[in-house]
Amino acid sequence: MTPAPEPDKDFPWWLLVAGGIAVWMIYAVVADDLYRQVLTTLSKGVWITIFVTLVGFLSASIIGLLLATASLSNSLILRQCARFYIEIVRGVPIIVLLLYVAFVFAPALVAAWNWVAETVGFDPIRTRDFTLLWRAILALTIGYSAFIAEVFRAGLQSIDKGQIEAAEALGLSRWQRFRLIIFPQAFRMILPPLGNDFIAMVKDSSLVSVLGVLDVTQLGKVTAAGNFRYFETYNVVALIYLLMTVTLSMALRRLEQRLRQKP
């Protein structure tokens, strides 16, 4: 029986088809005045989408790593607190989390800050000073940190305990074991699902449009409502997201292949 070829060795026919569609859509954008106007308008929201994704993902990764280490801690309290956070947050849809953080958690956070400010003599802030952009970033950070924590936990647990015991026998501290032995090996296991979460956040960043943040999706809705050309407008919106996600997907796959080739 002939073994099936490995997926990475298949010729990327899908990429040729997707590239052909992208070339056709890019030509339509270049050749049509309406498409060019829509692209010019939506390009202003690309930077908001990139900013929200990068800041949200970096913050979520830091919190996720802390949660993963807490869930593997010897302390029962840390383990239970980490599991509580992860299970509760993962059970709430991202769009519900966005609305909750924007209209419930953020005002409560401002009120708590003002209470502390009155006690220590700091200047109070207004709720509207906490912009919707940063509320959206906070919501995505909270939501994705729970998923990323599970990715880190699985990667850290994949390391053979014998290596950790050998590092202990050599006299390495806990931080040295993590930095030199555990994390470099776990990173290869973590990278594929972590990359998937990053691409998912690029797409989920479109949900910030429900708060009125002027990202690509929100500008697309405003543009379509103004010119009533929904077909052309949402073609450009889809093209922008596809270019970002497919490019990231190919770059991550290339990085995985390079890491796999290293000893």
Rank of each mutant, 00 (worst) to 15 (best):
T2E: 14
P3C: 05
A4Q: 12
E6L: 15
K9W: 06
D10A: 15
W14L: 13
I21D: 03
A22L: 15
V23L: 13
W24R: 00
I26S: 10
Y27I: 15
V30H: 11
V30E: 13
Y35R: 02
L39T: 03
T41D: 12
K44D: 12
G45M: 04
W47N: 03
T49H: 06
L54M: 13
L58V: 15
A60T: 04
S61L: 13
I62W: 14
I62S: 09
I62Y: 10
G64D: 02
L66K: 01
T69W: 13
S73R: 06
N74G: 15
L78P: 04
A82S: 14
A82T: 08
F84H: 06
Y85C: 01
Y85F: 15
I86S: 02
I86V: 14
E87P: 06
R90G: 07
P93H: 06
V96T: 14
L97R: 08
L99N: 08
V101F: 01
P107F: 04
P107I: 08
P107L: 05
P107C: 08
V110G: 00
V116R: 11
T119C: 03
P124K: 09
P124W: 08
T127Q: 15
R128D: 11
D129E: 14
T131F: 04
T131G: 07
W134T: 05
I137C: 00
L138M: 05
L140S: 08
T141G: 12
S145K: 05
S145L: 03
A146W: 00
A149H: 00
V151H: 02
R153V: 00
Q157N: 11
K161C: 05
G162T: 06
G162L: 10
A166I: 10
A166L: 10
A167R: 01
A167Q: 01
G171V: 10
Q176L: 11
L180K: 08
I190W: 01
P192G: 01
N196G: 14
I199K: 11
A200W: 04
V202W: 00
V210Y: 09
L211S: 05
L211A: 07
V213H: 01
L214D: 04
D215L: 04
V216L: 09
G226S: 13
F228H: 12
T233P: 04
Y234W: 10
Y234E: 08
L243K: 00
M244L: 14
M244Q: 07
T245H: 09
T247C: 13
M250V: 14
R254T: 09
E256N: 08
E256D: 09
E256S: 05
R258D: 03
P263G: 12
